[in-house]
Simulated scan of single mutants.
Amino acid sequence: MPAVSDADPALVEHVVASTGLAPDVARRLVGDVLAFHAEPVADYVRRRHAELRTYGARNPEIFDRIGQELRHRVVAAPELTERQLRRLVYG
Rank of each mutant, 00 (worst) to 15 (best):
Pro9Phe: 11
Ala22His: 15
Val75Met: 00
Phe63Lys: 03
Asn59Gln: 15
Asp32Phe: 06
Ala57Thr: 01
Leu11Gln: 07
His49Trp: 12
Arg27Val: 00
Asp6Pro: 08
Leu80Glu: 08
Thr81Val: 08
Arg71Tyr: 00
Thr54Met: 05
Val4Asn: 10
Ala3Met: 13
Gly91Arg: 12
Val75Asp: 00
Leu21Val: 07
Arg71Glu: 00
Leu52Asn: 01
His49Glu: 12
Arg27Ile: 04
Arg83Asp: 15
Ala57Asn: 03
Ile62Ser: 02
Arg87Val: 15
Val74Asp: 09
Gly67Asn: 04
Val89Arg: 14
Leu80Phe: 08
Tyr90Gln: 14
Ala50Asp: 08
Pro60Ile: 09
Ala26Trp: 00
Ala35Cys: 06
Arg28Phe: 08
Asp8Trp: 12
Val4Arg: 07
Ala26Asp: 02
Arg47Pro: 04
Val16Lys: 00
Asp24Gly: 02
Arg65Gly: 04
Phe36Pro: 00
Asp43Leu: 14
Arg27Asn: 03
Leu34Gln: 09
Leu29Phe: 14
Ala38Gln: 10
Asn59Asp: 14
Arg47His: 10
Ala7Trp: 04
Arg71Ile: 00
Val12Gly: 01
Tyr90Glu: 14
Asn59Trp: 13
Leu80Tyr: 14
Glu82Gln: 12
Arg53Glu: 02
Ala35Asp: 10
Val33Cys: 06
Val45Ser: 01
Glu39Ala: 12
Val15Met: 07
Ser18Lys: 13
Asp43Ala: 14
Pro2Lys: 03
Glu51Cys: 05
Val41Tyr: 08
Asp43Cys: 02
Pro40Tyr: 03
His37Ile: 03
Val45Arg: 04
Glu69Trp: 01
Ala17Cys: 06
Arg65Lys: 14
Val45His: 02
Leu80Gly: 03
Arg48Ala: 08
Ile66Cys: 00
Glu39Pro: 05
Arg48Gly: 00
Ala77Pro: 08
Thr81Lys: 04
Tyr90Lys: 13
Leu88Gln: 15
Gln68Arg: 09
Val16Ser: 11
Arg87Thr: 15
Ala35Asn: 05
Leu70Gly: 02
Gly31Cys: 09
Arg83Asn: 07
Arg86Thr: 05
Arg53Val: 00
Glu61Cys: 02
Leu52Tyr: 06
Ser18His: 10
Met1Ala: 15
Ser5Arg: 12
Val15Gly: 03
Phe36Lys: 14
Glu13Val: 07
Pro2Val: 09
Leu88Thr: 09
Leu85Thr: 10
Leu52Ser: 02
Arg46Tyr: 04
Arg86Gln: 09
Pro60Asn: 08
Arg65Phe: 05
Glu39Trp: 08
Asp43His: 11
